[in-house]
């Protein structure tokens, strides 16, 4: 009996069985992977980054004779390590860096400008926003929203009217653009969560769930390839009746 059974192992049935049971477990995730991957490849990353949301603010040449000397301003902040001369809204400014802290001062008078008030933040956002829309909402956030995680608070959030809810984040300390977001970016971040299966923080690409699921996907593909070996015939034949 034992030997008779051995000769009746039906490999096609085994291939089908393993493939369908693996697929039962991983099928929904496989679909998520494909659809999220499709979105991330089909929408160009430059569009996702919102490159078209802003236009470079005109940078005006600065006559160093008309501004305070950078070193002189830097010396006023003993713990600071960097100073940058730039222009904002057509005026020369210094941005002083001290670790993660920043300060903005008028480069002509040396008077502090930071922290920016609402009007100053809106003016800067409006100056670089490339769309036709007007500002619909401005708020000073003291808690960093997940769409700009890793940035420092407080931060001005300036939302404009227009397609995909374009939003610019302006630092009250430097007056500079910190991040630009719109719904295409938010959608990317959402599908990325499905892609890396970190359904909480959307950052951990080494989580155990992903590792297990990814290897199950490998097994599903391999058993699928195995099943392919039995799935094509040269011509239709009557199936042999199973023996035993």
């Amino acid at each position: 009996m034992a030997t008779a059974k051995k000769t009746t192992i039906r490999w096609p049935a085994w291939a089908r069985k393993t493939h369908k049971w693996l697929a039962l477990i991983i099928g929904v995730q496989a679909l998520f992977w494909m659809l999220s991957g499709l979105y991330m490849t089909a929408v160009h990353i430059d569009i996702i980054h919102g490159d078209a949301l802003v236009r470079p603010a005109p940078v005006l040449p600065v006559d160093p004779a008309s501004v305070r000397d950078p070193a002189e301003i830097l010396a006023r902040y003993p713990a600071a390590s960097t100073i940058k001369l730039d222009s904002q809204l057509g005026q020369p400014v210094f941005i002083i860096g001290e670790g993660k802290k920043r300060a903005l001062v008028d480069a002509r008078s040396g008077a502090p400008i930071s922290p920016l008030n609402q009007a100053a933040a809106e003016n800067r956002a409006q100056a670089i926003f490339a769309g036709p829309g007007k500002i619909v909402r401005t708020e000073l956030l003291s808690v960093i929203p997940s769409e700009i995680k890793g940035r420092s608070a407080p931060i001005w959030r300036v939302e404009f009217a227009g397609r995909w809810r374009p939003t610019l984040y302006i630092s009250p300390q430097t007056g500079e653009l910190v991040a630009k977001r719109h719904d295409l970016w938010r959608m990317f971040d959402f599908v990325w969560m499905f892609h890396i299966m970190d359904y909480e923080a959307r950052v951990d690409v080494n989580n155990l769930l992903l590792r297990v699921a990814a290897w199950m996907a490998v097994a599903t593909s391999l058993t699928g390839a195995w099943l392919l070996l039995f799935s094509f015939r040269r011509k239709r034949r009557v199936r042999k009746p199973a023996q035993g």
Partner: peptide, 20 residues
């Protein structure tokens, strides 16, 4: 001084940083 450096440049300054 930044102003003295500017004299050795052939073009106007757009931005400048003093940093380590």
């Amino acid at each position: 001084r930044l102003a003295s450096l500017a004299q050795s440049l052939e073009a106007p300054i757009l931005r400048a940083r003093l940093r380590p």
